[in-house]
Lab assay of single mutants.
Amino acid sequence: SEIVKHAEEALERGEFVRIEHNGRVIEIRNEEALEELRRWVEK
């Protein structure tokens, strides 16, 4: 997914991403959060 790709690229640069999706906000700061995002987006 485009969202996950964006988050992965930001993590590689040492940045973090805040994503709003279906009214929820998730902050991607590490691999664990990235995995959570993947599960969340796939639903």
Score class of each variant (00 low, 15 high):
residue 23 G to A: 02
residue 5 K to P: 02
residue 26 I to A: 01
residue 40 W to I: 06
residue 29 R to S: 10
residue 41 V to T: 05
residue 42 E to T: 12
residue 6 H to Y: 15
residue 11 L to C: 07
residue 36 E to Q: 12
residue 12 E to D: 09
residue 27 E to H: 10
residue 5 K to W: 06
residue 32 E to R: 09
residue 24 R to K: 11
residue 5 K to Y: 04
residue 24 R to Q: 08
residue 6 H to S: 10
residue 18 R to N: 06
residue 9 E to A: 14
residue 43 K to Q: 13
residue 14 G to D: 04
residue 14 G to K: 05
residue 20 E to I: 14
residue 1 S to R: 14
residue 42 E to D: 10
residue 27 E to V: 13
residue 15 E to G: 10
residue 27 E to N: 07
residue 28 I to T: 00
residue 21 H to K: 05
residue 20 E to H: 11
residue 5 K to L: 07
residue 20 E to N: 08
residue 11 L to S: 01
residue 6 H to D: 07
residue 34 L to V: 06
residue 24 R to P: 00
residue 26 I to N: 01
residue 36 E to N: 08
residue 21 H to Y: 15
residue 5 K to A: 08
residue 14 G to I: 01
residue 13 R to I: 04
residue 22 N to W: 13
residue 1 S to G: 09
residue 40 W to M: 07
residue 4 V to P: 02
residue 4 V to T: 04
residue 34 L to M: 06
residue 28 I to G: 00
residue 8 E to G: 08
residue 4 V to E: 01
residue 6 H to P: 02
residue 15 E to M: 08
residue 43 K to R: 13
residue 41 V to F: 13
residue 32 E to Q: 11
residue 10 A to T: 04
residue 34 L to G: 00
residue 30 N to T: 12
residue 38 R to G: 01
residue 31 E to F: 14
residue 35 E to A: 12
residue 37 L to K: 00
residue 24 R to I: 11
residue 14 G to F: 05
residue 2 E to I: 10
residue 14 G to S: 04
residue 22 N to F: 14
residue 11 L to A: 02
residue 39 R to D: 06
residue 25 V to N: 04
residue 26 I to D: 00
residue 38 R to Y: 04
residue 21 H to T: 06
residue 28 I to R: 00
residue 18 R to L: 11
residue 37 L to G: 00
residue 43 K to P: 05
residue 36 E to F: 12
residue 8 E to K: 15
residue 22 N to L: 12
residue 9 E to H: 08
residue 8 E to N: 06
residue 25 V to D: 02
residue 13 R to P: 01
residue 15 E to R: 07
residue 1 S to C: 15
residue 10 A to K: 06
residue 29 R to C: 14
residue 21 H to E: 03
residue 16 F to L: 09
residue 24 R to T: 07
residue 7 A to I: 08
residue 4 V to Y: 09
residue 36 E to D: 07
residue 30 N to F: 04
residue 11 L to Y: 08
residue 41 V to Q: 04
residue 23 G to W: 02
residue 7 A to N: 01
residue 3 I to V: 10
residue 40 W to D: 02
residue 15 E to A: 08
residue 16 F to M: 10
residue 42 E to F: 12
residue 25 V to G: 02
residue 30 N to S: 11
residue 13 R to E: 02
residue 19 I to W: 10
residue 37 L to C: 06
residue 3 I to L: 14
residue 32 E to G: 07
residue 3 I to R: 04
residue 12 E to P: 02
